[in-house]
């Protein structure tokens, strides 16, 4: 059962090591405001849409598209300086909500206002070209995430030092081990100094030693990025670093409040649901 394994890995009740709550004040200003937002997208179950299938479908009088109500009438404000955790089961609409706030997906209803520069950490190595060297990919990845050439040059040394690639920085990325790749990608992603940072489960990169360093960097981001939205199944991390939390269930905002309370309610809910399912199975 997928919902079970999520918890086994992340040990919901132990705190994440080396992480603490942001050492800063939450101001009254609103960084992200989400008002009655619904996101419905029409998607197909076809592997790849082709003309042939469209014609077959047309012949049978079927419809290709299916509506997915990913986010339903969700409203919340994120004050400047807060670290908001977003939790929920797989497919609850967490990533869709993040993409909507980042401006990648348009909302179907409602309105989202964002003040400040948004940076997304939704996936590692976005925009990388594996034929090119690490050095060239730093530039490419940085430009892809919206930095200017000058800004990348400014951070360049820091990024490459952090990734600890040594001479490999001038080798094509296709020759990298997967750990090296994620270290470089992580390093590019976290050196952007945005006003608002959206992170979607991109926290795992590299070996144990690098993980410590990555955690330290995350802490720095929590302290420096003025606002952060974090999607994670690692409930321990949410409890430790967030000072605000929302719980999405099938696209609906189920609860909002203190991370410890929300996480507790969510864990209870999932346990109840699981035992019900277990009973059904019998």
């Amino acid at each position: 059962m997928s919902s079970l394994s999520e918890f086994d890995n992340s040990s919901a009740d132990t705190d994440a090591p080396g992480l603490t709550k942001p050492a800063k004040e939450v101001t009254g200003e609103v960084a992200v405001s989400v008002e009655n937002v619904s996101v419905t997208y029409r998607t197909t179950f076809e592997r790849v849409p082709t003309l042939k299938q469209a014609m077959v479908r047309f012949g049978r009088g079927q419809k290709a598209v299916r509506e997915v109500h990913a986010v339903r009438n969700v409203s919340f404000d994120v004050p400047k300086g807060s670290v908001l955790g977003i939790i929920g089961h797989n497919g609850a609409g967490k990533s869709t909500l993040m993409r909507t706030i980042a401006g990648i997906l348009p909302p179907n209803e409602g309105r989202i206002s964002v003040s400040g520069r948004v940076s997304t950490l939704l996936a590692l190595g976005v925009g990388f070209n594996t034929q090119l060297t690490g050095r060239e990919n730093v530039m490419l990845g940085g430009l892809a995430s919206g930095l200017s050439r000058a800004e990348i040059m400014e951070r360049y040394q820091e990024i490459t030092d952090f990734a600890e690639l040594g001479d490999f920085i001038d080798a094509p990325v296709r020759t990298y081990s997967s750990g090296m790749f994620s270290r470089l990608a992580f390093s590019v992603a976290v050196h952007m100094r945005p006003d608002i940072l959206l992170i979607d489960e991109a926290l795992s990169a590299g070996d144990a030693q690098f993980k410590n360093k990555a955690n330290a960097k995350m802490q720095e981001l929590v302290d420096n990025a003025s606002t952060m939205l974090l999607v994670s199944h690692a409930l321990g991390t949410i409890k430790t670093i967030c000072n605000d939390c929302i719980w999405l269930d099938h696209g609906v905002l189920k609860m909002r409040g203190n991370p410890a309370e929300v996480v507790a309610a969510y864990t209870d809910f999932v346990k109840v649901k699981q035992s019900a399912e277990v009973l059904e199975d019998l």
């Binding site: 909507t100 401006g103 348009p106 909302p107 409602g110 309105r111 989202i112 964002v114 948004v118």
Partner: peptide
């Protein structure tokens, strides 16, 4: 940065 200072996403 200025262009991004305040963004609104609507349907």
């Amino acid at each position: 940065t200025r262009a991004r200072a305040m963004q609104t996403f609507e349907p």
